[in-house]
């Protein structure tokens, strides 16, 4: 492994960066494919389907948006839901910020564009254990990941016209399964288990009450606020 300064100066390290992205690629291609197929079924044009993977590049938000498009939700509710779903990236960005203080703004802007759950997981583990590698290596990981996401999407677009029904392939379970996996990997203590159960129950309640477009946002904001209040209260008491 090159020392950071040296590899940065030489702009080397991109093959290492590409290889670091391989576990991500293995996941992004099939899920991107599922997204591509489902987007076609939801009535998105091939161009819009690909543009979303290029411009938004956020797997779970894209799959959620496809569901909302299919259900005829408004633009405002789709954008707000995306905002809430992707707010977690604020934390990822804040977590890597101290490691990247020496980077130029333009590089940080490019890095942030491709900061996903998975690239964050790869980078944060590496930054903390081995330090920050050269920009070429970091960007190689990010670009490889996004290219694989777009390729998966393109495959899905192509298959979308061939596959009559996504159900026999279980593609309609991609999103629930993704939520389960993300949720389990996020939960670290009992307070978070309580937060999850409460938010889930509240969301279902709001949906049954007829607030179908807003249940996720409202439940999240209320329960996250309750979580902070509980945390403060239990700290004061102890």
């Amino acid at each position: 492994m090159n020392p950071p300064a040296q590899s940065e100066a030489a702009g080397r390290g991109w093959p290492t960066g590409v290889s670091r992205a391989m576990p991500i690629v293995l996941g992004y291609v099939p899920i991107g494919l599922a997204y591509g197929v489902l987007a076609q079924k939801a009535g998105l044009s091939a161009l819009n389907t690909l543009l979303m993977s290029l411009l938004v590049y956020a797997g779970s938000a894209q799959l959620i948006a496809v569901g909302l498009f299919a259900g005829g939700a408004s633009v405002l509710s789709i954008v707000l839901t995306t905002f809430v779903v992707n707010l977690r990236h604020l934390l990822f960005s804040a977590a890597v910020a101290p490691f990247l203080q020496h980077w130029r703004k333009i590089d940080l802007a490019g890095f942030a564009y491709e900061l996903t759950d998975e690239t964050f997981a790869v980078h944060s583990a590496q930054f903390a254990s081995e330090g920050v590698p050269g920009r070429a290596e970091v960007f190689a990981t990010n670009v490889t990941a996004q290219v694989s996401w777009i390729l998966g999407t393109a495959l899905g677009v192509l298959l979308g016209s061939v596959i009559a029904d996504v159900k026999p392939l279980g593609l309609d379970y991609a999103l629930p399964a993704m939520f389960i996996a993300l949720l389990i990997l996020q939960i670290q203590d009992r307070v978070q288990v309580a937060v999850a159960l409460l938010a889930g129950a509240l969301s279902v309640g709001l949906l049954l009450a007829g607030l179908g477009q807003w249940n996720v946002i409202v439940a999240t904001v209320i329960v996250a606020t309750l979580g902070v209040m509980l945390e403060r209260w239990s700290k004061k008491r102890s």
Partner: peptide, 26 residues
């Protein structure tokens, strides 16, 4: 930071529970 730390778990559960309990969704 405290508020944001609860957002991922809350938002994921808020999306997951309806998907599992009310399968036809919207």
């Amino acid at each position: 930071v405290a508020w944001l730390s609860y957002v991922p778990v809350a938002v994921l559960a808020a999306m997951l529970f309806p998907a599992l309990l009310i399968p036809e969704g919207q």
